[in-house]
């Protein structure tokens, strides 16, 4: 059985921080090695959850866009919202999930710009849903440690 990617990355991080960095005499190079160790640890954390985070985000953003579609006046934005809301993931590759995530985030910005200036109940509801999703997204993407 092959060791998983995150196991390999964490192992390399430990080697870098505990064996390589202390053996490096040049302070600048040593700090670079320590920075690489922190990046490997973050990459290990991200590897395991990357697809789940993006799938959850994309699903949540599509739900918001679908809810907004009903209220947005007919026209270009409404058409784009409707298409994006019904889109399915092209694959579970991170590049595909990221491409969809970018498209959905761009639309989320558009729809939030529209609703945050409105006093209508549906607009306030959508604005709250967007903030709930942004809060959840910040939590999902938070790295569990801070190296500074």
């Amino acid at each position: 059985m092959k060791p998983e990617v995150d196991v390999v990355l964490r192992s390399m991080m430990t080697k870098l921080l505990l064996e390589v960095a202390p053996a490096v005499g040049d302070a600048y190079v040593r700090s670079n090695v320590e920075a690489m160790g922190a990046l490997l640890a973050a990459a290990a954390e991200e590897f395991d959850r990357a697809a789940e985070v993006r799938v959850a985000e994309n699903r949540s953003m599509r739900e918001i866009l679908r809810a907004a579609t009903k209220h947005v006046p007919e026209g270009d934005l409404r058409s784009r919202l409707a298409v994006a809301a019904e889109e399915r993931e092209a694959s579970l590759r991170i590049t595909d999930l990221n491409a969809a995530n970018d498209r959905l985030r761009a639309l989320l910005i558009e729809i939030q710009t529209l609703v945050e200036g409105s006093d209508e109940e549906w607009a306030r509801r959508i604005d709250r849903a967007i903030w709930d999703e942004l809060r959840a997204s910040a939590r999902r993407r938070a790295i569990s440690f801070y190296p500074f």
Partner: peptide, 9 residues
């Protein structure tokens, strides 16, 4: 590199 809904808001 990607749209930034939090920064834009």
């Amino acid at each position: 590199l990607t749209p930034q809904p939090i920064a834009r808001a």
